[in-house]
Design a protein around this nucleic acid. Structure first.
Lengths: 229, 229
DNA sequence: CGCTGAACGTGAGCAACGCTCACGTCGATG
DNA sequence: CATCGACGTGAGCGTTGCTCACGTTCAGCG
């Protein structure tokens, strides 16, 4: 989980896009393109971002960009994937630091880490994990499927969070839990987007509401069948 | 609230876009463009929608479209506004039909009506109220502000829901309530988007989860300071 | 009745976009 | 040294959102 970057879909065909670089020089270029994309994202936004400008800033010709990425959508998807890996890595470290946490503590950590990355990681404020749309500015056919191609993004993230949560959610029915995490994830992402729309560093009141919302929902979710809230 | 369509921003300057038609013939064209936009939205999606095709289907030249709407974003915003008016009208009628409802019943009605429109109203599945982004495919500067120009969309909708809810939320602090409604709205919209992404008619399990999520959160919100959920 | 000017209607065309593909470059191999 | 395939390259293609110079319409007037 912590070894290499881009851990998911690590083994497989060239994946959603094109060629996955293997030589070191190409890997550097691959990373540079993603970095340039992230930087520009913060400056001009997702819709105004152009592939030519990304290539220019990354010091690669436009053709090289299209060797690594199938298009603008795929480029943003790759950035979202890297963001997700980065996030899960950081959350993992935080979870190991704390001795034991319950679902509420898990929620707080997860939200806090997300907020921290929104504030510091370039481009994260615009695409985060590519969760809810709002990206996909000039796609071709059907949108969605940014991270795992055949699996819904949110389900993929939920499953990885579930694995990461491990003993925190030990006593829960896995299927119900996955459903609950998907819902909580989607809701939390939406509220946090609102928080960062209201204030550049995230409206503290809305961040607090996000935690309450998720804690309340997950508590009910984890207590088996639905007792009165 | 129920008299004319497009009740919000009824009086004012030409509004976000261009000219607001006053002669009957022009009003018909205005409506036809919006209808054509909605229809195409269902067929090709928001990102693949082109202004030329909208104009063609509405039987107006492209220039006429740009007399009424400042651009593609504005066109979708206008559709979102009409959707919102339509929705609030329907919800109003439902609320009058029921004798008295509590917050939980209000939630159920609001969600059910939303779901019903997702299933039947052309284009509603793609833009609904333009709430969370996911639209805005080729905007100019800054996105957002689709409905009320200077007010955040969600706040605008929350305020109108608050007014519509009336006696349901009578005993609550108005400021806290607005905050809570904004959060609930954003979360519910996100979860329902997920529900309709999973299944064409909306995954029933996810719709149920949406209601639970909102009910649980609003119950806590309305009971003053936070008691254990 | 014809004249007139402003408002309205129109679509060829422009700038900018995402993306392709024919062609250069280069190091390994026969 | 000649040959070859993989990698790198950017002019250019098709398409998009949008503009703007030019008809067309019509109420008000001499």
């Amino acid at each position: 989980m912590s070894a290499d970057t881009r851990s998911h879909q690590a083994a497989g065909q060239p994946a959603p896009g094109r060629r996955r670089p293997v030589q070191q020089r190409s890997q550097e270029r691959y990373g540079r393109i993603l970095d340039a994309c992230a930087g520009l994202l913060d400056e001009v936004g997702a819709t105004a971002l152009t592939t030519k400008e990304v290539a220019h800033r990354a010091q690669v010709p436009i053709g090289t960009l299209y060797q690594f990425f199938a298009g603008k959508e795929d480029l943003l998807a790759a950035l979202a994937g890297r963001n997700l890996d980065h996030y899960l890595q950081r959350l993992d470290r935080r979870l190991l630091a704390e001795s034991t946490v319950g679902p509420a503590g898990f929620t707080d950590l997860a939200v806090d880490e997300f907020v921290a990355m929104k504030r510091t990681v370039p481009g994260f404020g615009q695409v985060d994990f590519g969760l809810a749309g709002a990206v996909v500015p000039a796609g071709v056919r059907d949108d969605r499927h940014l991270i795992d191609a055949d699996l819904d993004n949110n389900t993929a993230v939920a499953l990885r969070l579930q694995a990461l949560g491990g003993e925190v959610f030990a006593a829960a029915d896995p299927v119900t839990l996955t459903l609950g995490l998907r819902v909580a994830l989607e809701a939390a992402d939406a509220v946090l987007k609102l928080a960062f729309r209201s204030a550049p560093d995230g409206d503290p009141a809305l961040i607090a509401e996000c935690k309450r919302l998720v804690r309340c929902y997950l508590a009910e979710q984890l207590s088996g069948t639905l007792p009165p809230c």
